[in-house]
């Protein structure tokens, strides 16, 4: 867009407008995941037998995916670092690396889910699996959305345009990583 309103150029709080908006996005995401995970934890505490269902989740796949997301977060923050120094090409390369991380995460998830569904642990099997697929699925949707947005931003990066957006998608990506940091022990480790 050629023309931007003057409103966009002001920053009375000292936080640039884009970043402030992303903080609000993250704040509203906190309550979405908070409500879902809170409901899960309550059920988990009243259902001691869920530990017997949780043993069928694959801790190693979960741990590998945690490693993948942590590493992609590192490359996202390195992309931000490159962008603040005005190096759009380098930022784009780091973003692609992050996108690859998101891709690997989804592929691993796909294999995990296929295996579990084949064993009969579908979303309707019982409430544990219902929460398992809903929570991890909602998170996976966020991963996919992040990858798509990052792809769009990386194209601008190559032209050295809109470099501040690298930080914005980075913050979102770190949040997605953060959600997984809690999902991993909740769904995989606690047995």
């Amino acid at each position: 867009m050629a023309m931007r309103p003057i409103a966009t150029t002001r920053a009375m709080t000292g936080i640039p407008t884009g970043r402030l908006a992303v903080w609000w996005v993250i704040a509203s995401e906190i309550v979405i995941f908070g409500g879902l995970l809170g409901s899960y934890i309550m059920h988990r505490l009243v259902n001691p037998q869920w530990a017997n269902y949780a043993i069928h989740t694959n801790t190693w796949a979960g741990a590998f995916n945690t490693l993948v997301l942590l590493t992609s977060s590192l490359s996202a923050v390195l992309a931000h670092h490159a962008a603040t120094h005005g190096d759009g090409k380098k930022a784009a390369r780091y973003l692609w690396f992050t996108m690859a991380g998101g891709g690997i995460f989804i592929v691993v998830k796909a294999f995990e889910w296929t295996h579990e569904i084949q064993l009969g642990y579908t979303i309707t099997a019982n409430a544990f699996w219902a929460f398992y697929y809903t929570a991890a699925g909602l998170h996976a949707l966020h991963v996919i959305a992040g990858v798509v947005i990052m792809g769009i931003i990386s194209v601008d990066c190559l032209k050295n345009q809109e470099l501040h957006r690298v930080e914005l998608i980075g913050n979102y990506w770190h949040f997605v990583d953060l959600v997984w940091i809690f999902l991993f022990p909740l769904l995989y480790i606690a047995k």
Binding site: I30, L178, I181
Partner: peptide
């Protein structure tokens, strides 16, 4: 992750308050 990668350590405290408030509501 929040403090270092999201730079909340050096961000204005306003942003931290926003996020913490939502967490407290949860």
């Amino acid at each position: 992750v929040a403090a270092n990668f999201m730079h909340l350590k050096t961000e204005k405290t306003l942003a931290v308050y926003m996020l913490v408030t939502c967490l407290v509501f949860m």
